[in-house]
Amino acid sequence: MIPVLGLVVGLVVGLLLDPSVPIWLQPYLPIAVIAALDAVFGAVRAVLDGIFNDKVFVVSFLSNVVVAAFIVFLGDQLGVGAQLSTGVVVVLGIRIFSNVASIRRHLFKA
């Protein structure tokens, strides 16, 4: 429950502060969000599985975001940024779906 509160606090702070994102960082935001979602759902599933580990969560979160952003950056340099972004979204999307399906089974037993 406390992490959820933290999430809400972060949302509110972000909405209130409304910081301006530098233009060079904007292409990485959607990918970062997807990667963060993946890490969050993975953590929720791990909690339900009873194997949650805070260090693993933080490391996976950061590495997901950094690697995803790096792939997009590399793609931009190579001229295939859009395609690599799609690839990252597809891979992370599959993981998100699988994790959410597992969470659903945990919660609803269906």
Binding site: L7, V9, G10, L11, V12, V13, G14, P19, S20, V40
Partner: peptide, 20 residues
């Protein structure tokens, strides 16, 4: 660390939603 991470995640979501 988990709570800090959660706050960062929420912040990221809000910022991304607003700037995109």
């Amino acid at each position: 660390i988990v709570v800090v991470m959660a706050i960062i995640t929420g912040f990221l979501f809000a910022v991304a939603a607003q700037s995109l």
